[in-house]
């Protein structure tokens, strides 16, 4: 199972998560998003970039409630709710946003 990016073949697991998270790039994120039927807007990128920064610092993808709390602090309350995140990522921010951000499936993700 693979994504195709500029002629390169990039492996993912059966759920679409990257096998090697170090191969991630913005272009690859767009391709994964397309696979998830998501058009990446600046609002999508805010979440995806936040997830990458969080992972970089703590080596885990945050739980949703942690994500919501952190987005509230960074971008304000209107961008920090489950509803807002589900509007951006209809199949769940953990499932879709983490996948697009190239992160492993979050621990304890349901």
């Amino acid at each position: 199972m693979t994504y195709q990016l500029n002629g390169a073949t990039i492996e993912h697991d059966e759920e679409g998560y990257l096998t090697d998270i170090s191969v991630w790039s913005n272009d690859l994120a767009e391709i994964i998003a397309k696979d998830e039927n998501i058009d990446m807007t600046p609002e999508h990128w805010e979440v995806v970039n936040f997830l990458r920064e969080y992972y970089d610092e703590y080596q885990i993808a945050p739980a949703i409630r942690v994500l919501v709390k952190a987005l509230k602090k960074k971008y304000g309350p209107e961008k920090a709710s489950n509803k807002y995140l589900y509007e951006l990522f209809p199949y769940g921010p953990a499932k879709q946003a983490c996948k697009i951000a190239g992160l492993p499936k979050p621990t304890g993700c349901v």
Partner: peptide
């Protein structure tokens, strides 16, 4: 192996 020590610093978020 993965260095998971940074994750202890995330526990406060939880």
């Amino acid at each position: 192996m993965k260095n998971f020590s940074p994750t202890y610093r995330a526990l406060g978020d939880y």
